[in-house]
């Protein structure tokens, strides 16, 4: 039990962020017209490409002689970039299509 309380008090800031972000996410998506579901999914998909920051941190923290970590990290950064760049560009193209329809 004390461990649990310690965990809460040590990570209070993060716990606040998690809880508030959950509500923000719910609120932001509420009442979105069905036509925008796919672009919104695609946009959210690009945003979780933020995982690339973690991949970059892995690379920055790796020892230069740790070949395994460096090569896996290299792949992780590359895949993360694909997620970010591809995600935003594809979303933009979807929305561009919307405009032309109107």
């Amino acid at each position: 039990m004390t461990e649990f309380i310690d965990f809460i008090s040590n990570n209070l800031q993060m716990i606040y962020i998690v809880i508030l972000m959950i509500f923000v996410g719910v609120e932001v998506i509420g009442h979105v017209p069905a036509v925008l579901h796919t672009p919104l999914m695609s946009g959210a998909n690009a945003i979780h490409g933020v995982v690339i920051i973690g991949a970059i941190l892995v690379m920055l923290g790796a020892e230069p002689d740790n070949i395994l970590a460096l090569s896996l990290g290299f792949v992780a950064v590359l895949l993360g970039t694909l997620n970010v760049v591809g995600g935003f560009v594809v979303t933009d193209r979807m929305l561009e299509m919307f405009k032309k329809k109107k």
Binding site: M14, I22, V24, V26, I29, V50, I53
Partner: peptide
């Protein structure tokens, strides 16, 4: 999104945490 948020927890990295949780919750609602 959730997986990215766990990465944010690990590094104490706020942008991964906020981005990940945001997508996790918005994605679920979506």
């Amino acid at each position: 999104g959730l997986a990215a948020a766990f990465g944010g927890f690990l590094y104490g990295n706020m942008v991964m945490l906020t981005g990940g949780i945001l997508v996790g919750s918005a994605g679920t609602i979506l």
